[in-house]
């Protein structure tokens, strides 16, 4: 157990490895010195506690990075500022899915309709599916923040969720009245 603790602490102590020492890159490759080490670019971005140790959402929103949205100028950003509450979360807090943070990076077609139907509630999935790399787990746990961060998704208590739903219903009713 002591050894495990030491290994864990060692892993957490240094944020980014040099490419030549990362266990993946071949240190005998003469071209290796031309590649950028992660520390150089990641250490100047907003920090996070997991993943690349970079808060990618904040980095984009702050303008710390300015990633291109297209190569061939065919795809334009289609930002959707719409939260979806996923109520069936067992005993865990309810999930708030923010379309905004996702559409700032992704195209609608990355998730719809093959991973998730557009109609809220039409796609049934469980945490086990996600842990096996399906649905949200296609990215979370692989490239976006890992599945150890329960509270980032399971973030809304039931009372708050009920209040938001009532507000949404009222807003929808008002909008329908106007039409």
């Amino acid at each position: 157990m002591g050894l495990l603790c030491v290994l864990t602490l060692t892993a957490l102590a240094s944020n980014w490895q040099k490419l030549a020492e990362d266990g993946l890159h071949d240190p005998t490759n003469p071209a290796l010195k031309l590649l950028q080490d992660p520390t150089e670019s990641l250490s100047v971005l907003p920090p996070d506690s997991t993943g690349n140790k970079v808060d990618w959402i904040r980095a984009l929103q702050n303008g710390d990075i300015k990633p291109r949205s297209n190569i061939l100028e065919q795809l334009e950003d289609e930002i959707l500022d719409l939260d979806v509450l996923i109520m069936a979360a067992g005993s865990a807090p309810i999930v708030r899915f923010p379309h905004k943070a996702h559409t700032e990076w992704l195209d609608c077609s990355n998730c719809h309709e093959h991973l998730f139907k557009s109609k809220a509630g039409a796609t049934q999935f469980t945490m086990l599916d996600i842990l096996q790399g399906e649905y949200c787990g296609t990215c979370h746990g692989a490239v976006s923040f890992p599945l150890t961060e329960c509270n980032r998704c399971h973030s809304v208590d039931p009372d708050e969720a009920n209040r938001i739903q009532r507000e949404m219903a009222t807003a929808k009713a008002e909008a329908d009245d106007k039409q």
Binding site: S41, I65, P67, R68, L72, Q74, L75, E104, L106, N110
Partner: peptide, 16 residues
């Protein structure tokens, strides 16, 4: 991935 997402959004490679 880290190097590429600094320069390109996910959609560039995964949609376009």
């Amino acid at each position: 991935h880290w190097f590429h997402r600094i320069r390109f959004k996910c959609k560039v490679c995964h949609a376009e």
